[in-house]
C-alpha cells in the first residue's frame, strides 16, 4: 500500500486546531517542525511553545487522533527542543486569524500598536502575563476593552 505523501500529512495537520486558541491551527502556530516517513512509520516532530504549557500533551493527543482517523497506523511523535520555538514561526495567516479573533499578534517591538477590536493606537499593558503562557494582558484606552496580546518570543 502506498503511504500518504508528507504534503498530504501537512495538509491534515493544518486542519488540527490549537486546543487553547482554536482559531489557529498547529501548522499556523509553527510547532510542527518536520513530517517524514521512516520505513512504514510516520514521524512527526513537534516543538513545545512554552516548556510548561499544559496544552503540549493535548496537542500530541490531538495530532495522534487526527492522523489515526486518516488511517495512519504506525506513528511516532518526536519532541524537539532546539531550535527553540519562536513567534517568528507563526504564519502570516495565523497572525491574521489571531487579530480577527481579538488577540493582537506578536510584534518584535514588544507590544501591540493597536487595539484588535477598534483599531485605536491608544493601548496600554496591564500585565506581562495573561490567560495562557503565550499571552499578555493589554487594554485599549479608547474603547476601554481589555484584550490579549500574543507575546513575542
Amino acid at each position: 500500500m502506498q503511504h500518504p505523501s508528507t504534503e498530504q500529512v501537512w495538509d491534515w495537520l493544518s486542519a488540527v486546531p490549537d486546543p487553547e486558541i482554536p482559531v489557529i491551527s498547529l501548522t499556523d502556530l509553527g510547532i510542527i517542525r518536520d513530517v517524514e516517513w521512516q520505513g512504514d512509520t510516520l514521524v512527526v516532530t513537534v516543538t513545545p511553545t512554552y516548556s510548561g504549557c499544559p496544552a503540549t500533551s493535548i496537542i500530541n493527543l490531538d495530532i495522534e487522533t487526527a492522523l489515526r482517523e486518516k488511517g495512519i497506523e504506525k506513528l511516532a511523535l518526536k519532541r524537539q527542543l532546539s531550535p527553540a520555538w519562536t513567534t517568528d514561526w507563526l504564519s502570516d495567516e495565523g497572525k491574521r486569524k489571531l487579530e480577527a479573533y481579538g488577540i493582537a499578534p506578536p510584534r518584535p517591538a514588544g507590544g501591540p500598536d493597536h487595539c484588535p477590536r477598534c483599531g485605536s493606537g491608544h493601548v496600554e499593558k496591564v500585565s506581562q502575563f495573561g490567560s495562557t503562557p503565550c499571552k499578555a494582558a493589554w487594554r485599549c484606552k479608547d474603547c476601554l476593552e481589555p484584550f490579549d496580546y500574543f507575546k513575542c518570543i
Binding site: Y50, G52, P54, S127, Q128, F129, G130, S131
Partner: peptide, 10 residues
C-alpha cells in the same frame, strides 16, 4: 496570573 504563569514555566 503572572505568578501562576511563572510557576508553570518553572
Amino acid at each position: 496570573i503572572a505568578l501562576a504563569n511563572t510557576a508553570l514555566d518553572l
